[in-house]
Design a protein around this nucleic acid. Structure first.
Lengths: 215, 215
DNA sequence: GCGTAACCTTACTCGCCAGTAAGGTTAGGG
DNA sequence: CCCTAACCTTACTGGCGAGTAAGGTTACGC
């Protein structure tokens, strides 16, 4: 480290340290159970600093949401560049996602595992960031529709596929925790194997191909 | 209703009413933000009754978890009977799930959308109920492996597929909220279309069938 | 070298909520 | 009819945690 026992730290740096600590605590305890005191202590600072810089517990949480949503989206967009074919874009996007979650597990928990509605502002920001990710995925899926030779499908289908993909990826996040050795590449590969063919089925209209007996 | 303005209600009935109310409040607010007072009021009763019958806030939450986990498992098992072919079993299981969530949205939220760790006992019970559902799905997937003619695959793969399915189904729960008209049958059909073929790919070993260009 | 702004702390207040004490009321068995 | 157990209430306590008041300390520009 280059900081020679510097107790006093300039505001922009300290703000990031506070947000770093907050993400860890919010992820571990959830919004309500997290205490600002614990966050402050983890950031190596006392509570009033948090209020001076981030305004309130809600403001602190919003700052976490905004910063991490931005980060995740940036990583995702950088990977799924339009230069590739639709399926390679999707593959790259998934790989970027799994890599991100491997490195920033807490961020994903804060962004996507919040059940309650602590306040209108938080509900809104949470909805914003989730919609942004879903929109990105839906865009990839739609690019695939355009590349397909079938008739134009309603947007419903792209959205449906996007929800399926995001949900699957989120759940596989837990699977990763159970299998620490597994590299993101292998998970991406297996998930691609599992959904790529099926996506075309859904996007080309619903034709369940192999019913062996009818109910 | 058959109750002729009966203020006093026998314990077993009242307990269920309290749990009903608790599920609604826990789903809406989350474990920590939920107040026992609000639950009591919604159950048409005063707070000490809750403590008399369910012991503590934690005990109340555990009762909710146990009752609803049991319910969901029962519905799922009743639908996915071994008499059908593997794919029809899976279809029936998914349909049962989506039907259950349509009718008992709050139960699913309480069972599956809890990020924090309020107490060791709750963490344990939460893990138990999730593992039970995953085990059920993994069982279905394994039945499919047995029916497949490929070599015996490691259990990893069945578990991987189960996580993907549960995650996708959970996320589609949100999609359902956005499309209230959509019947569970249509969602099940689309999801089957999307994953059925791909499952075989994963279970038969990873062979990404259609890469158009390599990275 | 000194003053001022930026950085930081201790030590509070105040409201909310889990949990409880103490006792009131009705059903229904004898 | 009456009395006891089951049902239910009002009215508290105690602690935790968000938010703040008041003031102390160091860097750094001039």
């Amino acid at each position: 480290m280059s900081d020679i026992r510097r107790r006093r730290v300039p505001r922009p740096v300290r703000e990031q340290q506070i947000i770093d600590a907050a993400i860890r605590v919010f992820a571990r305890r959830g919004y309500h159970a997290a205490s600002v005191d614990e966050i402050a202590e983890l950031a190596g600072i006392s509570k009033p600093m948090v209020y001076l810089y981030l305004d309130s517990k809600e403001g602190l949480f919003l700052a976490c949401l905004r910063r991490e949503a931005e980060r995740l989206l940036a990583v995702f967009r950088a990977a799924a560049v339009p230069a590739h074919s639709p399926e390679l874009r999707l593959r790259a996007g998934l790989l970027a996602f799994f890599t991100f979650v491997t490195e920033h597990r807490d961020s994903w928990v804060v962004l996507h595992r919040q059940s309650s509605e602590p306040s209108p502002a938080i509900t809104a920001e949470l909805a914003r960031s989730r919609r942004a990710l879903l929109a990105e995925v839906t865009g990839l899926v739609r690019a695939d529709i355009a590349a397909s030779d079938g008739p134009a499908r309603p947007d419903d289908d792209a959205e449906f596929v996007a929800y399926t993909l995001v949900g699957a990826a989120d759940s596989l996040t837990d699977w990763m925790a159970l299998h620490p050795g597994e590299p993101p590449e292998r998970i991406t590969l297996r998930l691609m194997n599992m959904v790529w063919v099926g996506m075309r089925n859904v996007l080309d209209g619903e034709v369940w191909t192999t019913p062996t007996q009818l109910p």
